[in-house]
Simulated scan of single mutants.
Amino acid sequence: MRTGSGWRDVPEGYGSWSTSYDRLNAWSKAGVFQGLMDALFAEAASRGQVGLELGSVDSTIARAHHESAGLAITGETSDASEQALTEETGLCRTISRRYCEWYGAGRHTRCGRPGPVAGCGSCRRTATPQARAAAARLGRSRGGGLSSKVHAAVDARGLPLAFVLTAGQAADCRQFIPVLDKIQVPRAGRRPRTRPDAVAADKANSSKANRAYLRRRRITGSSRRRPISRGNRKKKGSAGGRPVDFDPDRYRQRNTVERCFQKIKTWRGLTTRYYKSPESYEAGPHLRGSIMWLKHLSSTT
């Protein structure tokens, strides 16, 4: 992951390259790397070294190599991906164009169009390219080409608290709440702490739903509003409500999340995505985050 080299280039001293790959794949799916970061995170929390006075949220793009495309998915994974695409676009995607002799007996629930009949041997379902990309969390960002996006929440020292991996075109504002919900700071004899005192984020995360979420959880938010949002509020006059509070001094400290991404992307295997499996690639940020927490704990002992 650090050098971005191919698996066949693994030194012979580490054994068979296929064994190394299989072990990484198994550990990543089992959550070993996330558990490692959580363990170091818990140790830092027991020492009171987690800076939750201010959290920062942002995302970064990782270009995907052509070898990362073509994830093989079947069964429930394919159905779940198709359902997610249907809910996102509002359109029903027909997975197979081949219908059985009982044409029209089965219909999709959203659009009512005829579709493959469950249990028919000639209607075997194969994943569409859209479903395959959704399962691999690959998409196309503005720059073109396949890419993935890593959303992160960091503490006041720039150390990672949580990661969320999505497709490259995924909107930041929709992942603001999921990445904050993943924060779990262990406390002895008490429930884990799940929210920082304040959160700094850029304009991409300044949506009405996100601001309502912060107010509901009593978290102080500091993010600039989009110019179009400010214009719409002014058009409404007094009905537009008061301007959103903005603390420029707290907003300047948002650079902590950018510094975290800079450290993560010193690993060439994370700057460019080579892995087909999203779990294998997501293991990289967790492993890099574990090293960052380990260095922090070593420097304070």
Rank of each mutant, 00 (worst) to 15 (best):
M1P: 02
G104I: 02
G289L: 09
S96Q: 03
R142I: 07
R193L: 15
E282M: 14
L24Y: 01
H108C: 12
S298F: 14
A162R: 06
G51D: 14
R195K: 10
Q49M: 11
G15N: 04
D247C: 06
R215S: 10
L91K: 11
R191P: 14
C111R: 00
V117G: 06
S5D: 10
L146I: 05
S59E: 02
C173S: 07
L165N: 11
A30N: 05
H296Q: 14
S290W: 06
I219Y: 08
V164M: 05
L138N: 02
L270G: 06
G35I: 06
R63Q: 11
L146H: 01
H286Q: 13
D79I: 04
I95D: 00
R217I: 11
V179C: 06
G35N: 05
R250H: 08
E87S: 09
A44M: 12
K265R: 15
S5A: 13
A105F: 02
K236S: 09
L159I: 03
T266Y: 15
E101T: 09
W293I: 15
L180W: 02
D249W: 01
V117W: 03
A30C: 04
C100R: 05
G31V: 02
G6D: 13
S229H: 04
R137A: 09
R113S: 05
M292L: 15
S68G: 04
P243D: 07
Q253W: 10
H151P: 02
V57Q: 01
D197L: 12
S148D: 00
L85V: 07
C111Q: 03
S206Y: 01
W102S: 13
A135H: 05
G115W: 09
P278T: 13
P178L: 07
S223V: 12
D181I: 00
V150Y: 03
A204F: 08
E76L: 04
R97F: 08
G144D: 00
R215V: 09
Y275C: 13
S141K: 14
S222K: 01
G221N: 02
F41D: 12
R98G: 07
K208I: 05
E12Q: 14
H296N: 15
